[in-house]
Amino acid sequence: MNRKKIKSEQDKQNNSFGFNIKDAFSLKPRIEIFDNTSAVIDGSCGVLEYSETVIRVSLGELSLKLCGRGLTLKCISPTSLIVGGFIKSVEYIM
């Protein structure tokens, strides 16, 4: 009975695309990585470090460090950015 209740609550939160609507509208940073060639970071607070091998992005309480080679900022706006290049690792720094 308890399981059924939990599942129905989850169904209410998820839409037909299978993601949580609550998460979509939250102010938390959102990171999408496509293969290892680009990453979309939404909710960034600024670029902390920018070089061909390392891009460090401030996400408020934590920062995100992308390592790789030939990294570039394809597009940048006050709250989001797109990183292109060959991404080798993703690291969260508290």
Binding site: G46, V47, Y50, S51, E52, L71, L73, C75, I76, P78
Partner: peptide, 21 residues
Amino acid sequence: PERFINLSTRQGHFVLFSRPR
């Protein structure tokens, strides 16, 4: 240079094709 990118982006001047050397 990162600060420059951040400041200019916040003021609505979107930096295009930025490439580190």
